[in-house]
């Protein structure tokens, strides 16, 4: 993609997000009485910030039209999308069946997904590392990690 396209896409998104947040900031729920806010509403500063970034995004947008020809490297969307979905699934699973039982499948899937597919090292690392992290955090650092509904600490 070109640098101009980058800047254009970015500035347009920022303007849209800014407009939406501005709309949110002027909702009645943020209106407070003078007794409460000493003269400046809680959305006083947020609105200044949003306004500034919309203005700068406009400048960026205008400037981007002059940069359309400059090239920058691209990236693999599909791979990343799948990977992000995998991570979300991992965290979701972790809330249900605990850290240890979700980390082991995640480690296997992640390594396999990213290209390292030698079965035995994957199996060993995927078991040993989450176990080590679990032990270190729960017993040495005494930071409880999410545990499964079947045991009280795993």
């Amino acid at each position: 993609m070109s640098k101009g396209f980058q800047d254009c896409a970015f500035s347009v998104s920022m303007i849209v997000i800014g407009a939406w947040l501005w709309w949110e900031a002027i909702q009645p729920r943020y209106q407070t009485s003078a007794a409460q806010d000493y003269g400046f509403s809680p959305t006083f500063l947020p609105r200044i910030l949003i306004g500034m970034w919309i203005v700068i995004s406009l400048i960026l947008l205008i400037r981007s039209f002059g940069l359309w020809s400059r090239r920058v490297s691209g990236s693999e969307w599909k791979t990343l999308g799948l990977f992000v979905a995998l991570v979300f699934a991992y965290v979701g699973l972790m809330t249900q069946i605990g850290f240890l039982f979700s980390s082991i499948p995640f480690a296997i899937c992640a390594m396999w997904f990213m290209g390292f597919r030698r079965a035995l090292p994957v199996a060993l690392i995927a078991t040993a590392f989450p176990l080590a992290v679990w032990y270190g955090f729960v017993f040495i650092l005494k930071i409880p990690l999410p545990y499964s509904p079947w045991f009280s600490q795993i």
């Binding site: 396999w112 994957v122 078991t127």
Partner: peptide
């Protein structure tokens, strides 16, 4: 891969 996964889970549960 499937066997490896089962093996891992089995070890984890036995230890825990």
């Amino acid at each position: 891969i499937g066997m490896a996964a089962c093996l891992c889970l089995g070890i984890a549960m036995a230890v825990s």
